[in-house]
């Protein structure tokens, strides 16, 4: 399990597979429509070099980008009962799960790793939007609980990076229960006075936004990310209201006081490292807290 085997090798394999070359060499920016050479896109952390639009960053690239020198260790997440409701719509839920697992090579929509950010011990939990829309069911809830418990154990900061449409409908009320479960999980970290930072990426909506994602000490959002409770389509159809420009975008949330800052991806790591550093390395206690004048200091002071 390393960056090399998880990320580099599949990437190389996908590049050398001749049939897929035409699709994989170029990507189209969904914002400005310009074509972007794949290698440029990766170099720019999936930010369009033409218009600055932030495309969705794959979960593994996110981990590589956040940790010091990209170094991190994945943790194995607990096994969770599969398909508790025996749910089936036009397709069986178990089949949808298998498809997503085969496509991503992951068990579910959350990846957890630990390492250091700016020298500060950190546990990072990243949502994989490609895995059933990053939806949150039992497995994701268990993953977040494991991440929080690891942070407490290691006295590390907890960073969660949601990219999720919300609760996973196929798990019915059990997915709703994740709102309470994940709230308990992040509170464990906060009770220990360890930093809990939420890095809101596109999209963070529904049950995910209505629980742990809005309970951080610090909320950092990526430019243009959709963040909100109800989906825009739901609002439009049920209320028949015209949605204002930029509605539910990161900048809108900043304006409405729901996030601390909107930070472009290129500056994200440094911002995070700085914040964690200030919160965790508070400097020599004597220098900051001492109210007793140091010997000799009063004599040297003129005029008192």
């Amino acid at each position: 399990m390393s960056w090399l085997t998880n990320f580099v090798r599949p990437k190389i394999q996908s590049l050398v597979r001749p049939r897929e070359v035409p699709e994989n060499l170029w990507d189209k920016c969904p914002q400005c429509g310009n074509m972007i050479y794949r290698r440029d896109l990766e170099k720019s952390l999936y930010v369009c070099p033409h218009c600055g639009h932030h495309l969705r960053l794959p979960a593994k690239n996110r981990l590589a980008m956040l940790f010091d020198e990209g170094k991190h260790q994945r943790i194995e997440l607990p096994k969770t009962p599969v398909d508790p409701l025996r749910f089936r719509d036009s397709k069986r839920y178990t089949d949808r799960l298998k498809e997503a697992q085969a496509k991503s090579g992951e068990q579910d929509a959350l990846i957890v790793a630990h390492g250091r950010i700016g020298g500060v011990a950190a546990v990072v939990a990243v949502f994989d939007f490609d895995f059933m829309g990053g939806s949150m069911g039992m497995a994701v809830g268990d993953g977040l609980i494991a991440a929080a418990e690891l942070a407490v154990l290691q006295e590390a900061a907890l960073i969660v990076v949601p990219a999720s449409g919300g609760a996973r409908m196929q798990e019915g009320v059990l997915s709703l229960m994740q709102l309470a479960r994940t709230t308990v999980a992040v509170d464990k970290v906060k009770e220990r006075r360890l930093p809990y930072v939420v890095l809101l990426t596109d999209p963070t909506t529904g049950g995910v936004s209505a629980s742990f994602a809005m309970l951080g000490d610090i909320h950092i959002a990526e430019p243009g990310a959709q963040i909100g409770f109800a989906g825009t389509r739901v609002i439009e159809t049920t209320i028949r209201e015209k949605l204002p420009d930029g509605f539910q975008r990161a900048e809108y949330l900043l304006e409405h006081g729901m996030v601390d800052m909107v930070v472009p991806r290129a500056q994200l790591r440094d911002t995070l490292a700085r914040i964690l550093g200030i919160l965790r390395h508070r400097g020599p206690a004597g220098e900051v807290l001492s109210l007793v004048p140091q010997t000799g200091a009063a004599d040297a002071e003129p005029g008192h």
Partner: peptide
């Protein structure tokens, strides 16, 4: 699910 509700968090 309304615009005002979203605006106020």
């Amino acid at each position: 699910p309304g615009v005002d509700a979203e605006a106020r968090g």
